[in-house]
Design a protein around this nucleic acid. Structure first.
Length: 551
RNA sequence: GUGCCCGUAGCUCAAUGGAUAGAGCAUCAGCCUUCUAAGCUGAGGGUUACUGGUUCGAGUCCAGUCGGGCAUACCA
């Protein structure tokens, strides 16, 4: 849309004999009064040119030329901004691109031929998914969707561990409940998983085996069935909000010894050792991060001989690099904030390009009930479950709720509000705009025989009223909005944008009669509605919310 | 103590260093015999936690202070 403005400004600068290192910036003023586009170049250059910014701006404007019918006027405003006002017919004519490109509108091919991996959720199968995990899950899924619009081939991966101490405790927890069920229970330890789901698993085992397992000393059956049941419940929950993974990576495989006699973990130790970053003291093996200016070294292998979580983490990311991804995105909760810098450092030491790796950290979700903050813990069984949230507010609202805030903000989730919000929920505002358009188009097909096949599309140029042009102009912003969301790994940008589109449409709908207008204007307004629906649909697909045809 | 994130309307949150700091919810006042009122229009509500600094310009950047969250494990 604004592509032709930059060259015109640069040409004007050359004509005025101005050379500078400073980039020319175009921005969209918040207030329409200040034009459709604006540049601050005269303000930036006034010092090095030793000229009054307003005079400089006036001279630049003198020297600019544009194709006929594109720019309506240019003004100098405020301290020296140059403001561009576009011809409404030029804007409305450009809206045709939305319809021409259809589902592909907003896509680009900047990532074409490149592979990306997005890792998210990655919860170990020790219990049902909590609300907190849901935030990272939706964030990761939307980031993956965003990357796909840019042409990336995206692998969605889930990293989990079904071995180790936590799973041991899980197995024991189930056994305690099972023994209770058989009437032989002792006191249930505070250190174990107390959620009701443990009882359910024990009940399932009891239904299958009766009391036959009472004397079993093998924890395996308890652990394995718990893992299977919990993992399947996690996946079911994720599916309810349309989150699916292509690939499940088991941390355990990093421990298994391969044909060359080494595990992936061993290999990382060797590699880091060869670079001089491994030390042994206090009976443990350390990553010598003090050499990198950190306060302490980090344990990689405990004195017991077991690796700490850091070692497989590094091995896992090394594996991602070896799988030849061009872009590696990790979506973590804030509790991992201290860990990823070590992984990055290790990979850098091993000679990998760490600029390929990006980390999206989402701050915690705090849940409040009756204004009181509830502390969550899977172990204590008082965690707020994602499944229950979906039951209460539905899949669309659940998804939207998690991404309508910036990932760096703590998300305050008022459970009661969410429950009674079924009607006031922000998701309905967006969906209502879509349903309204669908209804309108149905009616148009019946009453006027309108067909969305492109005939008469050019009539949009005839629309000149403020609500129409503002809506059209906003629709043209969509591709840039996506690029910005991708750059920042921040789908929240999309939510705000779509909200503004819905708002502009409702305003247009209110002020401009459509079916009752003159035939040509009617057709033009129907095409504008169609373009709006296209942008809403494309945006909804990225956010993973449904586009209802009626409400 | 140290590191990271946050502090903006009564509440939940926006604002690539730009012009009069914006939405939603809540409150109040209007708009349906007319294309979906889950909508629209308007009103009230602010010392952007505080103090300095950088510059044409700071909610945004820098330094410090205060407050909240997370992390600072040979847990994952």
């Amino acid at each position: 849309m604004q592509e032709f403005l930059l060259p015109a400004i640069k040409t004007a600068m050359q004509a005025a004999a101005i050379t500078t290192e400073k980039p020319v910036q175009l921005e969209k003023p918040a207030d329409k009064k200040n034009g459709d586009y604006s540049t601050n170049i005269a303000l930036l250059l006034s010092k090095e040119c030793r000229r009054n910014p307003k005079d400089l701006a006036a001279e630049l404007i003198e020297r600019m030329t544009f194709p006929e019918g594109t720019v309506e006027k240019i003004t100098v405003a405020g301290p020296g901004f140059i403001n561009f006002y576009l011809e409404p017919s030029f804007i409305m004519q450009s809206v045709e691109h939305v319809l021409v490109e259809g589902k592909g509108y907003g896509s680009s091919c900047t990532g074409k031929g490149r592979n990306a991996i997005v890792e998210y959720v990655s919860a170990n199968p020790t219990g049902p998914l909590t609300i907190g995990r849901g935030r990272g899950g939706v964030l990761g899924d939307c980031i993956a969707n965003l990357l796909e619009t840019q042409g990336y081939a995206v692998t969605r991966e889930y990293y989990f561990n079904d071995a180790g101490r936590q799973m041991q405790i899980l197995g024991e927890s189930v056994r305690y409940r099972y023994l209770e069920r058989c009437g032989k229970g002792g006191k249930f330890p505070d250190t174990h998983y107390q959620g009701d789901y443990i009882r359910d698993i024990a009940e399932t085992l009891f239904a299958e085996h009766g009391s036959a397992l009472v004397d079993s000393t093998d924890l395996g059956v308890f652990k394995d069935s718990a893992e299977a049941i919990i993992f399947s419940s996690i996946r079911k929950t994720l599916e309810r909000i349309d989150i699916r993974h292509d690939s499940f990576f088991n941390e355990h495989t990093l421990y298994t010894v391969r044909e060359n006699g080494k595990s992936a973990n061993d290999e990382v130790l060797e590699l880091l050792n060869s670079k001089g970053f491994i030390g042994r003291y206090d009976g443990a093996t350390w990553f010598l991060t003090t050499k990198l200016g950190q306060e302490k070294d980090k344990v990689l292998v405990k004195s017991s001989g077991e690796p700490s979580y850091r070692l497989p983490d590094i091995a896992y990311h090394l594996d991602k690099y070896r799988r030849k991804f061009d872009l590696i995105v990790n979506v973590f909760g804030a509790d991992h904030i201290d860990e990823y810098p070590d992984v990055v450092e290790a990979l850098r030491i091993l000679g990998h390009d760490t600029s390929k790796m990006r980390v999206a950290i989402n701050q915690f979700v705090t849940t409040t009930v009756n204004g009181e903050t509830v502390k969550m813990s899977t172990r204590k069984g008082n965690a707020d479950l994602l499944d229950e949230l979906i039951d209460d507010v539905g899949a669309d609202a659940t998804r939207l709720f998690f991404i309508m805030r910036g990932k760096d903000s703590h998300l305050n989730f008022d459970i009661e509000l969410a429950k009674k919000q079924s009607k006031d929920n922000p998701v309905f505002y967006l969906q209502y705009a879509h349903a309204r358009i669908c209804s309108l188009l149905r009616m148009a097909a019946e009453e006027t025989g309108f067909k969305p096949d492109g005939t008469g599309r050019h009539l949009m140029q005839e629309l000149t009223s403020e609500p129409e042009v503002q809506l059209g102009f906003a629709l043209l912003d969509y591709p840039e909005m996506i690029r910005s969301a991708v750059r920042l790994l921040e789908p929240q940008k999309m939510v705000e944008y779509l909200h503004s589109i819905a708002e502009l449409y409702h305003k247009f709908y209110q002020e401009c009669p459509i079916l009752k207008a003159e035939p040509e204007i009617c057709t033009a307004r129907l095409f504008l509605s169609l373009a709006t629906r296209q942008v809403l649909q494309n945006g909804f697909r990225i956010l993973g919310i449904s586009a209802p045809e009626s409400m």
